[in-house]
Nucleic acid binder design. Structure first.
Lengths: 211, 211, 211, 211
DNA sequence: GATGAATGAGGCTTCATTCAT
DNA sequence: CATGAATGAAGCCTCATTCAT
């Protein structure tokens, strides 16, 4: 509970908030250090007391933005919902949050997408964490007989692809208006009911995989 | 059918080609007008006779890049494959082309993604066209009894979402290494076998939609 | 005899000259790109058409400054003076030139020293060339029986050290007022008359090397 | 012998020490006032109570650095070695110290050279002192018949020039790897055996001075 | 006295765009 | 018509120094 550099931390926090405000107003990551500093009522030089570079500030903004999404993932995974529901919630709750943000300010959302693209490492760890958790859920589902004949990795890859649009913020930004929890539910059902290595009895010859 | 500005058109075409070359060599949109002009053997000032701005040139590049993908869509839709196969090919052939481009030059590919993001209207018409064609295919499939209880629009939206990662070049660029026609086939199978408004007999109560 | 980019070359030349003027007036390498551009009557941006960076401009200045010294070395080495005289002239003529420059403008001279220090690679090749030529002269002297018992490299090293102050512009700048061709002549004589591995007969026991 | 500003003096001393530490760690005078203050555990503003400017601090560092070299000179001069040996030691002991410093940390050494160049007056008094002592030694040597026909000043100047590379830290830094006490000994021998106004019997006509 | 925080002035560099020739 | 040359506006960043507390 030591409190080192409380000032710096506070300043950093303020700057992140201000930057977010600016993003919401101006959109696009064409935000300059001078603008941010002006908005914060300080000189550009002063800003560098809080962050070593523009990049460091932007990273902090990204971190700030991802934090609640990570929290949601953890919350869902550690719950004791049945696998199908858990997978649904795993995506649905994050989607709900992201959609709310998009509804509130599509331009700001687009800017976060841009920032994400420019700070790819930032996003990478977020993706990896998501994969890790999703693999757990898939494991649980397999324990109940789902995804017969598929490995965890294969299933992980396929699920990720089928719901990508509910995870990848870049894709989301483009399609948000057509996305809904309802549709996500259908997709998850299709995942659980339509995904397996063996084509189900009813239509063995029509499956593309039968060829 | 008069031909007033043949010269201008030819010049535009050449400039687009040269810009594409530059993209392949240098990657990223860190391409400057001066560079393009130098490569074209003309002065930067002259370039502005062909395009009003750098932006206009880049738009033309994007248009050029999308053309063959549009051609593929048209070709598949007008073929007389059965619906499931037709839908598969509808995505698979474009994917094959895009993957080939990515394999040949991931950096150039990333640049096109960037360009796409910066010229969103450009992409919009491409997406709309894809939707139009996909709706046709879905109609044919419904004629054979698929997607019971779902409207064309609902189905369109769901399919688009499930295969988004094979369509959205931004998402593709991030996941290309894990994508394959094989997995796409599984997803299309899941679409045809797992997507309907009524939960299939076996697990009526487990479906999320049953809630 | 092709004449490519005559304009650029001319511009570069002018900029080098102007920079030299500035050096003469203002001293110290605290010269800024803005200053040079202002003096040249162009914008800082324009200066970058001629040189890729400030560093490149400064390098050109250094090169310009060393050129006549290199010419002198070549001239002397290819002459057919006897070795002792040749070695003397090898240093003396360069010294005369440098001293003239120092007399004309000590501050500018000091600035060149600074520039040299900051662009060490620049100087390195100049030093290496000097060593190469000096080794030739030493070889000729050995052919006449001088430097008995010493290798070319040993002699080269010793001579370089004894006349360093007539070669190293940094050392020269500090001592210029006490340097003269007359003293250089005495040093060269001492080199030829006092330098050998065997202590000469007259004072065998007093030599430090006898211990 | 009043002691008014003991505190200030102590603080100055500490700051000098800390600055030296920093030089050893970070090399080059790219040291900022803020860094020094931080290392000293004081605010940059406080540092200005001890030194009026960054320059004043650096001057103090230079002074501190030269002190032991001065001590060596005094020690040798007041010894009762014979002149040739005394002159050798006069240069050799300082060289040994400087070489040791260079071996221990060439980067720090280079920084001192830089500092010296920037604070030339600092160096000037050191040089003058060295000249004073060397003149004494030359006087003793003359008392034993050396340097016939040359005045003390002439000889002083010549000796200084021939051994400059063992005295001038800027020159030393560039050539350190080729310097050795052995070579210095040879040079001093050449000074004592080869330096005089009258060309010695053997080669009266070959001497440059004969012309 | 001591200082934490702030900054003015300046450094180098880039590039889409224009205009006199 | 074509262009070579020029640049305004802007970008990020650094650091010795000061001043209100």
């Amino acid at each position: 509970m030591a409190r080192p550099q409380t000032d710096l931390d506070a300043g950093r926090h303020d700057l992140v908030d201000l930057t977010i405000e600016l993003i919401k107003e101006r959109g696009s990551s064409a935000i300059t250090v001078n603008e941010i500093a002006a908005r914060a009522g300080m000189s550009p030089a002063s800003l560098y007391r809080y962050f070593d570079s523009k990049e460091a500030l932007i990273e902090a903004v990204a971190e700030h933005w991802f934090a609640p999404k990570v929290a949601i993932m953890e919350e869902v995974v550690s719950s004791d919902l049945p696998p199908r529901r858990k997978m649904f919630e795993f995506f649905a709750r994050r989607f709900a949050l992201l959609k709310a943000e998009w509804d509130a300010d599509p331009v700001a959302f687009a800017t976060y997408v841009e920032i994400g693209q420019e700070n790819f490492e930032q996003i990478r760890s977020y993706i990896d964490l998501g994969d890790h958790y999703l693999a757990e859920i898939i494991g649980e589902a397999m324990g109940e007989g789902h995804f017969a004949g598929l490995s965890v990795d294969e299933t992980l890859s396929l699920v990720n692809q089928m719901v990508n649009v509910y995870v990848n913020i870049g894709a989301m930004a483009q399609l948000m208006q057509r996305l809904s929890e309802d549709k996500l539910a259908r997709i998850i059902d299709a995942v659980f009911d339509g995904l397996s290595a063996t084509d189900r009895g009813a239509k063995p010859l029509t499956g593309l995989r039968a060829a």
